[in-house]
Structure formats: C-alpha cells, structure tokens
Nucleic acid binder design. Structure first.
Length: 440
RNA sequence: CGGGGCAUAGCGCAGUCUGGUAGCGCAUCUGCUUUGGGAGCAGAGGGUCGCAGGUUCAAAUCCUGCUGCCCCGACCA
C-alpha cells in the first residue's frame, strides 16, 4: 500500500479527551475516531489490527472444535423474557422500539439467542457436545464509558457457547476453551494468566478471567511468578483428549492467581517472597460454566441415552477483540508510539523513501516494495513528499515491526537501512540483503 | 446516577472577568528553496464562537434553558 493513496489521518498533537496511552495512540495513529461517547469508527489502520486479532481468535476457536455462525445485533425482548433477563438486565441494555412498537434490543450478549437456536434443532445427546460461536458487535450502555476502546459501549466480542449432556462433558468443553484461550493470547504476543473468577449463583471452580499484565491495567492482580514461564500448549494438542486437557488446565490452575476482588491475602502470603508477583492487569477474556441456567427455563433439552429429556449444560466464553487492540498497545509501546507484535501488526513493513522524486531512491524503494510484496509481506510504502523527520515520526507512531529506510546518503554506498521497531537494532544492507532480511 | 470540568477553524489553545463585529501555533492550498529525526520564506483558504431563547445600538463575551463531551466514584468483555 502506498501511503499517498491510503487513509491514515495521524494527529501530531494529542487529543485532550484521551488520558490513557492506548487511547491516545489509537487516536494519534489514525486507527479510530470517536463518534459518540464509547462508540468508535474503525479507520483503516485500526480495522486491519482488529481483523488480524479476530482471525487468530477464529483459528484457535476452530482448532478447539468450536463452530462459527453469526447472530444478529438486534434481538427481540420476547426472547429475553423467557430467561427472565429482560427485566433483570437494567439500564445497561439498549432498548429499542421498531415501527410496530415491538420491543427490541441491541444485544449485550447472546445466551438467550443461542439457546433458542440450539433448542430449535438439537434434540438428541448424540449431537453433543456442541460449541457455537460468533464474532459480533455488542452494545452495553455503560454508565461511564472510558479508556477508548478498552471500555467502550459498542465493542466487538467473540462469544462461544458450549452444550453438553452433563457436567462432566461441560467440564471438558470448558477445558477446550481454556486451552484455546492460552493459545490465542500467546499467538497475539501476550502472556495471559487465568485467574479465578466469580462464578455467581452456580458456584464451583469453573470460571476464569484471563488477565494480561500491563502497567496501565485497570485492576490489581496477585499471582505466582511462575505463571510467566508456564508452557503454552502446542498446535498439536489433541482437544478430544479429556485427561490430557484436564492435566493442562490443572497445571495452569495449580498456583495462586487472583484479581483484587477475589484476592486472598492468606494464600498469597503463603507464596515464598521471591515468587510473588503483584502487578496491574487487563481482563481480555472470561470463560464460565453456568449449567442449566438458560436451558432449563428456555426448554433447551435433549433426549439422553436412557430416554429421558434433560436440559443441556452450558458454558460461555468471551474474548473482546476491540478491547484487545487497546490492551496490546498498553502492553507494547514506548514514548514514540505503538510497537506492534508481529502477528497483529497492520502492516509488516514501513518502507520510507526519504527523497521522493530522486531517481535512485524511487527506484530502490519500488524494487523493495515489489520484492517484499512478492514474498508475502505487507508493506506500507511512504511515498509522500514529507520530510524525513516527519516520516520517521509517523513510522514510529504506527509501530510497524520493520522499517526500511531508503535515502540518498545510504544509496550512495548502495545501502538501505533496516530497523526493528522497538529496539535500536539497525543495519545497513544492500537492497537484496534488506529484502531477504525482512522477508525472513 | 452523585461530584467536578469543558464546548471558539481538522488538532491544540487564547480571547469571556471588564460587550465593540474573532485570533495564535500546528495542519491544509499555491509558489520558490530545502531533503537522514515532525524544514524556511512569501502568499492564500477555512468559523452559523455547541444549540435555542433573552438583554443591548451592539453578544464568543451578560442572563435563562437545553445538548454534547471529558475527569473522579459505584458497574462491566
């Protein structure tokens, strides 16, 4: 992509409404634009990141056996009356009337709808287990939206829903998502730690929040330091291996980890001094088992092997890609701008032609641009006639993992400069060497 | 919802107290020069001063009402 043909409205100055770093940088880097309180338009650069995150989430959901569908954003109030949540949900739910004065709502979550879809078609235990998910916009009318897309009113969420015959089956379904989440966050370049979460009226130990550590995180967390080095389950993990998955979950839950709300001072004190880790964190995922909370009142039943009809055991599993965009920035930036982890970077390479119009730099830049494109790297080619300083500043701000700098001085010696964003590594290489280096 | 604050050009702000017909920096456009860390000079364009009333010869400025947005707290992926 040529920068001159792209839409990248970067801001030189910091908008005054943004006071956390990810919000500031997302606005300055031209990723988002606020349209209302807690409601954002995703500009091209931001959308690319959002889509890359969603793609990784999707791959890992599929790997774990979940099946994608897409439910609407608008739901009918009737459905929510079945579960009793229409009145229980309160003002967080955005309620809408259509032209016939029918009561509708913009979905804050989809338990009711997925239960309705399930019960319409699934009647036998033989069709279980089943896990259905979608990645869809949600709306929760937060009292006070803040922190940009970290806590917005409209947000993108991957929500998966599992259906099992009994609690044992549901536990395995839960474990599948647990492991999928470990893999998902690791692939995004994050270290997420599963922490015991509130299970509500259901009780038990089947609810975890996945928290990433970031200095600017909103909640205080306490855990054993060993979590930082725990191994991530590999791509070859067999998700149908019940005992194998349970072992992974057991080891990942064997040590103390809790947010301040669930913090147990005594258990934390029991950790040896050098192994304590107290930090700030951001919740990026939440999984829980809720049994027959919706299936029973809504009549989502299957016929069991013994011929009886039983309500299915369900769980739900959320990840917020639009929050993750901000969380990734909170976890990876410096004073100059964003430092994207490679798997989610909107482009792989920033190619800076320092003197557009100069025959030598134009030719070398185009050669690199095309060669990297052929090698499957996405390049943002800065072919604008800005001055070098402005180009460096923009490239640092938007944080692409590689920078290739083509200037008249270097080219006089047949060299271009290759830099890694986020480190001081820089090398002077020939055009061919630079292409090979960056294309890996 | 309680408490605090803001609204003037795309962004950041001054002007409001003390009413006199809107300004600065950056950005944008034109020209020339410049080209390795947010260039220089010259010129230009861009505003129903958040909205609606009111007071006044005259309102960004004073009065009344409304709206939007931000921050702190209680709530959330």
């Amino acid at each position: 992509m040529r920068l001159s043909r792209y839409f990248l409205p970067v801001l030189r100055e910091t908008p005054k409404e943004a006071d956390i770093v990810s919000h500031r940088l997302m606005l300055r880097a031209g990723m988002i634009r606020q349209e209302s309180a807690g409601i954002y338009a995703w500009l091209p650069l931001g959308l690319k990141v959002l889509n890359r995150i969603s793609a990784i989430v999707r791959e890992e959901q599929n790997r774990a056996g979940a099946v994608e569908l897409l439910m609407p954003t608008i739901q009918s109030a009737e459905l929510w009356r079945e579960s009793g949540r229409y009145d229980a949900y309160g003002k967080e739910m955005l309620r809408i009337a259509d032209r016939h004065e029918r009561e509708m709502l913009f979905g804050p979550t989809n338990e009711e709808m997925i239960t309705e879809i399930f019960r319409a078609s699934v009647k036998s235990y033989k069709d279980l287990p089943l896990n259905l998910y979608h990645i869809q916009w949600k709306f929760r009318d937060e009292i006070r939206p803040r922190f940009g897309t970290m806590r917005s009113r409209e947000f993108l969420m991957k929500d998966a829903y599992s259906f099992d015959l009994d609690k044992e089956g549901a536990r395995h379904s839960y474990n599948k998502m647990f492991v999928a989440y470990l893999r998902t966050f690791a692939r995004l370049g994050l270290r997420a730690i599963p922490m015991q979460a509130d299970t509500g009226p259901i009780g038990g130990d089947l609810s975890h929040e996945f928290i990433i550590l970031a200095d600017t995180g909103e909640s205080e967390v306490f855990c054993h330091k060993d979590f930082l080095d725990f191994p991530i389950p590999g791509a070859e993990t067999d998700f149908d291996d019940v005992a194998g998955l349970q072992d992974i979950v057991d080891s990942w839950t064997s040590l103390y980890a809790a947010t301040s709300e669930k913090h147990d001072e005594a258990r934390y004190a029991a950790i040896s001094e050098g192994d304590k880790l107290s930090a700030r964190g951001i919740e990026v995922g939440h999984i829980f088992y809720f049994g027959t909370k919706y299936s029973a009142p809504m009549g989502a039943t299957v016929t069991a092997p013994d011929g009886h009809e039983v309500p299915v055991h369900m769980g739900s599993y959320g990840i917020g890609p639009s929050r993750l965009v901000a969380a990734l920035i909170e976890a990876s930036h410096d004073e100059k701008g964003i430092i994207w982890p490679e798997p989610v970077a909107p482009f792989d390479v920033a190619l800076l032609n320092l003197k557009v119009g100069d025959a030598a730099t134009d030719e070398a830049s185009l050669k690199i641009y095309h060669a990297l494109g052929l090698r499957g790297r996405e390049v943002l080619y800065d072919d604008t006639d800005d001055r070098p300083g402005a180009k460096f500043a923009t490239a640092d701000l938007i944080g692409l993992p590689w920078q290739v700098v083509v200037g008249p001085k270097g080219l006089a010696d047949g060299k271009v400069e290759v830099k890694r964003r986020g480190s001081d590594e820089r090398e002077l290489l020939s055009v061919e060497e630079a292409v090979n280096k960056v294309a890996g």
